[in-house]
C-alpha cells in the first residue's frame, strides 16, 4: 500500500499514526507540509530511520523546493521523487491511503 502524509509532524501526529499503521514493504510518501518531517535532525528523524528498515520513504521534490528544503538536508535513505514518481508509486501500489 502507498501511504501519503501531507501534515507537518510538528503540528499533527499524521506521520506517527501512518508509521504505526503501515506494514513492512509499504511505500510512504511525504507531500506538502509532510516534507518538513524529512529534514535530518528534526523531530521525526529517528522515527523515519526506524521505519526505513522495513519500508521505503519518499519525499516529493516540488514540495521540498517550494519550502526551501535542499534534498541534501534530508534524513539518509529518503528518496526524492517528482510528480511522475508520485504517479508511478500510486500505480505500483494497489491502494493509496492518505493520512491527512
Amino acid at each position: 500500500m502507498l501511504h501519503t502524509v501531507n501534515k507537518s509532524p510538528y503540528e499533527k501526529n499524521s506521520l506517527e499514526t501512518c508509521l504505526g499503521l503501515s506494514l513492512d514493504g509499504s511505500d510512504i510518501l511525504l507531500i506538502e507540509d509532510g516534507v518538513y518531517g524529512a529534514i535530518a535532525g528534526g523531530k521525526a528523524s529517528a522515527m523515519l530511520l526506524e521505519a526505513m528498515k522495513t519500508r521505503q520513504v519518499y519525499a516529493l521534490g516540488p514540495d521540498l523546493a517550494a519550502r526551501g528544503i535542499d534534498p541534501g538536508r534530508l534524513v539518509d535513505g529518503i528518496t526524492v521523487v517528482d510528480y511522475g514518481g508520485f504517479v508511478e508509486l500510486a500505480a505500483r501500489n494497489d491502494r493509496v491511503q492518505a493520512w491527512l
Binding site: S8, Y36, P62, D63, A65, A66, R67, G68, D70, D82
Partner: peptide, 21 residues
C-alpha cells in the same frame, strides 16, 4: 514560533507546485 519559522527559510522556489512564492 513553531512551524511559523519555516516561513522565513531561504531558497523557497514554488514554481513546480503552481503556487505563488
Amino acid at each position: 514560533v513553531g512551524d511559523g519559522v519555516f516561513q522565513l527559510v531561504r531558497g523557497q522556489d514554488s514554481t513546480q507546485t503552481g503556487m505563488k512564492n
